[in-house]
């Protein structure tokens, strides 16, 4: 496992399958965060043609931690939105390590409305440690920006497919992830808090992050079993060792998901059904017990 994490790129690596049962959740956290793992623009550049990036939230600025725009996918025009991390330290600083500010979520929301206006499906790539914690972000309403993006997605009258390609960091990830189909790469993780933060709070020791990662059930396999994720896209070898193979597999899965959703939309009252299915998709999530028979229903 350590070997897989330390290998840098395809050029130097032999593509030996990594025995997936040997990977702990913490191994997957490290793989999901691997700097050489393909990021949103890598997917955009390979899967789509004619990508035209659209910038800015029309209110305050342009957040480089979110990229988005119009692109061609097969014979379809799509609007693509993704968190963007950097492939090296310099780029990572420019991209704020994929931590989005309110203007980033507002840009994403604007692009979603753009998609809805023209009946264009939306594809999002999720890869963020979380929304940026910062003074300016709080001043400009980080919570409100995320909530408004969710509200827009809840009622967006066009199909949405989300792919968790790396790190799914809490509300900052969900803010562009409230989709009709949620696909997840095998070594991606999606958590309500970072294992380090969870360990710091509940274990009183951030160093216990590997244990927290285990307890939190954040792997693709876990989330599939919970019915939160619809499909796990296998990584026979970790994505950073098999960039093109991984991107192709994601492309195939997105194509299938979009085909299914467009089939729903193309039927009479298809958009109403899409909206109904999206509502039900999130409506049913949760586990509780009901001690007594419900009186009022």
């Amino acid at each position: 496992m350590r070997r897989a994490l330390n290998r840098r790129s395809e050029s130097t690596a032999t593509l030996e399958p990594v025995e997936s049962v040997a990977l702990t959740p913490w191994d997957r956290v490290k793989l999901a965060r691997h700097q050489s793992r393909p990021h949103s623009l890598d997917y955009i550049n390979v899967l789509f043609t004619g990508f035209i990036e659209l910038h800015g939230d029309r209110l305050f600025g342009d957040d480089p931690a979110i990229v988005g725009g119009l692109a061609r996918f097969g014979d379809r025009t799509i609007v693509v939105i993704g968190h963007q991390k950097g492939g090296d330290t310099r780029e990572n600083i420019r991209r704020n390590f994929g931590m989005v500010r309110p203007e980033g979520y507002r840009k994403a929301e604007r692009l979603m409305r753009h998609a809805e206006k023209f009946g264009i499906p939306v594809v999002t790539f999720i890869d963020t440690p979380g929304a940026e914690p910062g003074i300016g972000s709080e001043e400009r309403g980080q919570g409100t920006a995320i909530a408004e993006s969710l509200l827009t997605m809840a009622g967006l009258k066009t199909p949405i497919v989300a792919v968790i390609i790396g790190e799914g960091g809490s509300g900052g990830a969900l803010a562009i992830g409230m989709a009709d189909r949620m696909l997840m790469l095998e070594n991606a993780v999606y958590a309500v808090a970072s294992p380090e933060a969870c360990a710091a709070i509940l274990w009183k020791d951030a160093g216990k992050a590997p244990q927290a990662a285990e307890t939190m059930r954040i792997t693709a396999e876990d989330l599939l079993s919970f019915g939160i994720v619809d499909e796990v896209i296998p990584e026979l070898v970790p994505a950073h060792e098999n960039t093109h193979g991984t991107i192709s597999a994601v492309g195939d899965a997105v194509q299938r998901a979009l085909d299914e959703l467009m089939e729903v939309v193309d039927q009479p009252s298809g958009l109403d059904r899409l909206m109904e299915q999206r509502y039900e998709r999130f409506r049913r999530i949760g586990v509780w017990s009901e001690a007594l028979p419900v009186a009022a229903e």
Binding site: A147, L150, L151, A154, G155, S170, G171, L174, M178, Y190, A191, V192, A193, C198, I201, L202, M216, R217, I218, L223, F226, I228, R278, Y279, F282, R283, I285, G286, V287
Partner: peptide, 23 residues
């Protein structure tokens, strides 16, 4: 904030409640 002990079930309540508010 979120109930960490319920993991992603907890996070998804954000989406669920916002969807209900939209309705």
């Amino acid at each position: 904030g979120a109930r960490m002990h319920e993991g992603l079930f907890s996070l998804m309540q954000m989406a669920k409640t916002v969807a209900a508010f939209a309705r």
